[in-house]
Amino acid sequence: MSTVICPRCAYETVDHVATSPVPGVWDVLQCGRCLYMWRTTEPERRTRRDAYPEAFRLTPEDIAAAQEVPAIPPLRTGR
């Protein structure tokens, strides 16, 4: 897996999530940073960094700026 990078954010740590019930047909991989998940048999526009559309790419700044929805409420006290 060392040559595989995340198509969406280019992170170099990719986890193996699942493998095809028919052995050797495909694997499901996941980025360790942006959590993007893909199957190795998907079209290149979803699986290769150089073919992944600009509009869907994420930068570390995008990830850091992601808003929390819904916001975590304050703990209820004095119960």
């Binding site: 999530v17 499901v28 959590l35 998940m37 199957r39 998907e42 526009r45 979803r46 869907f56």
Partner: peptide, 15 residues
């Protein structure tokens, strides 16, 4: 993944 044949819908979907 052992129970459901999961798959992606649209190109930009995160998973």
């Amino acid at each position: 993944f052992q129970v459901l044949p999961l798959f992606r819908l649209n190109d930009g979907d995160g998973g």
